[in-house]
C-alpha cells in the first residue's frame, strides 16, 4: 500500500478529504455504470445465443437442402444456377449510441429474384435452399451486429470494472491510509510540542 507523498499538514488533510469524497462518488457512479453494462451484456449474450442457435439451425437445413440439390442435379447445373444469380445483397452500417458507447447498427437489403432459373433442370430442394439462405442472411447480419455490440460492451465493462477496482482497492484505501497517517503525524507533532512545552515549563518553573 503506497502512501501518497504529501506534506503532513491540516491543509493536506482537508484536500485529501475532498478528494476522498470525490473518489467515493465516482466509485458509486462507476459501480452503477458497471451494473448497467453487465445487465446489457447479459441481455446481449442471451440474444446472441438464441439467434445463433436459430441461425445455425436454419443454416444447417439450408446447407442440407443445397447439398441434396447439388448432388441430385449435378455440379454443372448448380454452378450454372449460382453463377447466373442476379441477387444483390446490400449491407449498410449506421452508428448508434448505447450509454456512452458507439455501436454499429447494420441493415440488410436483398434485391432481385432469387429464383432466377428455369424449372426443368432444377428441383424444389434448390428453391427451398435458396429461399432459406435469403431468409437467413438478415438474421446472420443481425447476429453479427449483436456480437459486435457484445464485444464493445464487454470491453467497456472490463474497463469500468478495472476503474471501479482501482478506486475501491487502491485509490480510496490509499487516500484513507494517507489521511490516517497525516492525522497520526499531526497528533504526534502535537504530542511532541506538548511534551516540549511541559519540559520547558519544568525548566522554567
Amino acid at each position: 500500500m503506497a502512501l501518497i507523498g504529501v506534506n503532513p499538514n491540516r491543509m493536506e488533510v482537508l484536500r485529501l478529504r475532498k478528494r476522498l469524497t470525490l473518489c467515493q462518488r465516482g466509485h458509486r457512479l462507476l459501480k452503477q455504470k458497471q451494473d448497467e453494462l453487465m445487465r446489457i451484456l447479459y441481455r446481449l449474450i442471451d440474444e446472441a445465443r438464441h439467434l445463433r442457435e436459430e441461425v445455425e439451425k436454419e443454416l444447417t437445413k439450408a446447407f442440407r437442402l443445397f447439398l441434396l440439390a447439388e448432388s441430385t442435379l449435378g455440379e454443372n447445373l448448380i454452378k450454372n444456377v449460382i453463377s447466373f444469380l442476379q441477387v444483390e445483397t446490400h449491407i449498410e452500417e449506421q452508428e448508434k449510441r448505447l450509454l456512452n458507447l458507439r455501436v454499429p447498427e447494420l441493415s440488410v437489403e436483398i434485391e432481385g429474384n432469387i429464383y432466377n432459373y428455369g424449372f426443368l433442370w432444377t428441383n424444389s430442394d434448390l428453391d427451398n435452399a435458396l429461399s432459406l439462405f435469403s431468409e437467413v442472411i438478415p438474421e446472420l447480419v443481425k447476429l453479427c451486429e449483436i456480437e459486435r455490440k457484445l464485444l464493445i460492451v464487454a470491453d467497456e465493462a472490463e474497463k469500468t470494472r478495472r476503474r471501479v477496482n482501482a478506486l475501491e482497492y487502491i485509490l480510496i484505501p490509499d487516500i484513507e491510509e494517507t489521511m490516517k497517517r497525516i492525522v497520526m503525524k499531526l497528533e504526534e507533532i502535537e504530542r511532541a510540542s506538548r511534551v516540549r512545552l511541559m519540559k520547558v515549563k519544568e525548566i522554567v518553573g
Binding site: R64, L67, L68, S71, T72
Partner: peptide, 23 residues
C-alpha cells in the same frame, strides 16, 4: 448416377437418412 452421388455425399455430410431416401 444421380442417386449414387446423392447418397454418398449426403451420407458423408451427415444428412439424415430419411431426408436422403426421400430424394
Amino acid at each position: 448416377l444421380k442417386s449414387i452421388r446423392t447418397i454418398v455425399s449426403g451420407k458423408i455430410n451427415g444428412v439424415p437418412v430419411d431426408m436422403i431416401r426421400e430424394r
